[in-house]
Simulated assay, not measured.
Amino acid sequence: MRIFAIGDPHLSFAVDKPMDIFGSQWENHPAKLQEEWIQTVRPEDWVLIPGDISWGMRLEEAKPDLEFLGQLPGRKILIRGNHDYWWSTISKVRGILPADMYALQNDSIRIGDIAICGTRGWNCPGGYDFDEHDRLVYEREVSRLELSLKNADQQAIEKWVMLHYPPTNEKHQESGFLDVMRQYNVSVCIYGHLHGDGHRNAMLGEHYGIGFYLTSCDYLNFKPLQLR
């Protein structure tokens, strides 16, 4: 069993939302993702998908995108991204997921000796576009991350965090997400959200004893990243 991550598939089989308007790297990207995934992931592996899964606005519009991911090898764990407008109540989301696909929301799931926790996240204070509306959502998401980590199986040896947003601002300053992860001895943090020129703002490598990984599809050239 291995663990991979890849985020931001931005699928749109039921709606008209082509991604190639954001650059040539996105041309026919579902086929690229499918090819790389099949060549990389085995059925017994796990794949973490940190949000922006579907451009669908409603559950029924997201269903073909979820089914596309569901037929790919491996078991998948999802969190919500900022563009996952289809994500309704967690019970409804879990009700349409294909087999061996799991959605996290204020809870966690254990893989072997690792507890996988997570939440969407948000823009962090000190960022260039941060405002008072952002503060309310940011504080709520920090609380949700702590709730997820509190839920983690205490017998797990490691705690990993999935966020959609980066855990800090563009200047890599302190944030509530970093505070909570240090408090709960998190060892790995994966996230997405950043595309194109935004890749340069990524926090990468080890900081505070935590390994940080940007896993946006276009950053990984559509190939799932092996973490373990």
Rank of each mutant, 00 (worst) to 15 (best):
R2S: 15
I3E: 01
F4M: 06
I6A: 06
D8M: 05
P9Y: 03
L11E: 03
F13N: 10
F13M: 11
A14N: 14
V15K: 09
P18M: 11
F22G: 01
S24D: 08
Q25D: 09
E27D: 10
N28H: 05
H29P: 03
P30T: 11
A31H: 11
K32H: 06
K32T: 04
E36H: 10
W37C: 06
I38L: 11
T40G: 12
R42G: 14
P43D: 15
E44N: 13
E44F: 06
W46L: 09
W46R: 04
V47R: 00
I49R: 04
D52T: 08
D52F: 07
I53G: 08
S54A: 14
W55Y: 15
R58F: 15
E60N: 12
E61S: 07
E61W: 03
A62G: 14
P64W: 06
P64S: 11
D65W: 05
E67F: 06
F68D: 06
G70D: 06
Q71D: 10
L72F: 12
L72E: 08
I77V: 14
L78E: 00
I79R: 05
G81V: 03
G81Q: 01
D84V: 04
D84N: 08
I90A: 10
K92N: 13
G95L: 09
P98R: 03
A99Y: 07
D100M: 13
N106Q: 14
D113C: 00
I114E: 03
I114A: 02
A115K: 02
I116R: 04
C117K: 00
C117Q: 01
T119H: 00
R120V: 07
C124N: 13
P125R: 02
G126W: 01
G126I: 03
Y128G: 07
D129G: 07
D129V: 13
D131V: 14
H133V: 11
D134I: 00
R135I: 07
R135P: 00
L136H: 10
L136E: 12
V137G: 04
S143E: 13
L145K: 05
E146T: 05
S148K: 01
D153P: 07
Q154M: 12
K159N: 15
M162G: 12
E170K: 13
H172E: 11
E174I: 11
S175R: 13
D179W: 08
Y184H: 15
C189Q: 06
C189N: 13
Y191C: 02
G192A: 12
H195C: 09
H195D: 07
G196P: 05
D197N: 09
H199I: 05
M203H: 08
M203Y: 09
L204A: 04
G205S: 11
H207L: 12
H207C: 05
I210W: 03
G211P: 02
L214G: 02
T215V: 15
N221D: 15
N221R: 14
F222N: 03
P224K: 12
Q226N: 09
R228P: 08
